[in-house]
């Protein structure tokens, strides 16, 4: 990887001052994505600001029953947190579905929010990639697209967002807290990740000098009955072809509350609002589940290599909702 200056700030303020004065600086969390990309030459920061020593690793209760998760909480720790498991099981499950145990012990919440795509053409310096090199073109469009997105894509980029955690956060209406020397900001998760459009190099709403300090999960009773279903080519340790984060509340046979987000199919963690709208107030049955899924996938733009994802996503959404509805019956 390209040589860089290494900075280990003593506190958050020092970190913010450092990033404000070092152009081309990157924050380093668990390193699982950034170190990989630096070694591949995709990321080439001049300065690396190691924030792993900062005191941002607590999970705190919020007065309304929500939780505030420090940006440096490790994925494995967050997945094991009893409050997460009780109030937001889909988040714990999403974290546990991601990567490997070793990587989850390293990866942080803040880093996971900034995880970059696994598109092979993005990784390969010999391939054309608008995300890596704006204006260079996109070799993925007519390449192998099995892992690529079908929702939110553009003619410039069809890379899928790789994070499992972010799919759950999208379903849960999380809010990302960020700080810079200019002040604090709260960014709703739906606005945090950007669609590629003509500028796939711009992936998040985070400014270069901003540090993610926490993620807030609002109180959400419906999430107590939720799950994360990940479909992939291996039984473990693979990125999602399709994943579904879903919460469902059924009252008198009708959908009284629902949260639905998709992974593996979106250019960003995909909140399935069209499906949610279709479901809300309607029957909680198989036909309705499928109709809702189809409503969401109607906007899909597929390539020959990933056309199966519309059917797969539809089937997986329906299956996940069916299982939740069955749990409701049982419980």
């Amino acid at each position: 990887m390209k040589p860089f200056a290494y900075v280990k700030p003593a506190d958050v303020e020092a970190a913010l001052r450092a990033v404000a004065t070092e152009p081309g600086a990157k924050f380093l969390g668990g390193g699982t994505n950034l170190v990989d990309l630096m070694r591949e030459g995709v990321e080439r920061p001049d300065t690396v600001i190691d924030v792993t020593g900062l005191p941002l690793d607590a999970v705190d209760d919020l007065p309304d029953g929500g939780l505030r998760i420090g940006a440096l909480v490790r994925n494995s720790v967050l997945a094991a947190d009893p409050r997460i498991r009780a109030r937001y099981p889909m988040l714990s499950q999403a974290l546990l579905a991601g990567a490997s145990p070793q990587l989850r012990n390293m990866a942080t919440v803040g880093g996971n929010l900034l995880q970059r795509t696994r598109c092979a053409y993005f990784y390969d310096a010999a391939a054309a990639c608008n995300k890596r090199e704006p204006g260079a073109g996109c070799d993925a469009l007519d390449g192998f697209t099995r892992g690529h997105a079908v929702l939110g894509v553009s003619g410039s980029c069809i890379a899928a967002h790789p994070s499992d955690m972010c799919v759950a956060l999208a379903a849960l209406d999380a809010v990302v807290e960020v700080r810079s020397v200019r002040g604090d900001r709260r960014i709703p998760i739906g606005e945090f990740h950007l669609l590629p459009g003509d500028t796939p190099q711009n992936e998040t709403a985070l400014a270069p000098d901003e540090l993610i300090t926490a993620v807030e999960l609002p109180a959400l009773p419906v999430a107590a009955r939720s799950r994360y279903r990940k479909v992939r080519d291996r039984a473990s340790y693979a990125f999602a072809l399709v994943s579904v984060a879903a919460a469902l509340e059924v009252r008198d046979g009708a959908v009284a509350g629902v949260r639905l987000a998709l992974g593996g199919v979106g250019a960003k963690p995909w909140r399935a609002r069209a499906a949610e709208e279709a479901l809300l107030g309607g029957a909680a049955d198989e036909a309705a589940f499928r109709r809702a899924a189809e409503a969401e996938l109607a906007a899909a733009t597929v390539r020959p290599g990933n056309a199966f994802k519309t059917a797969l996503a539809t089937a997986t959404i329906a299956a996940t909702l069916r299982e939740l509805a069955r749990e409701e019956d049982a419980g």
Binding site: Y6, V7, K8, A14, R17, L54, D57
Partner: peptide, 30 residues
Amino acid sequence: ADGPGGPRDHARPAADRGSHRNGVLLASGV
């Protein structure tokens, strides 16, 4: 250099630890 929550502190001369700027430890191969 070790801030709160950072790695366990252990005794060694701080003078060995690279330069500081903006109140942060800077260590660089360049």
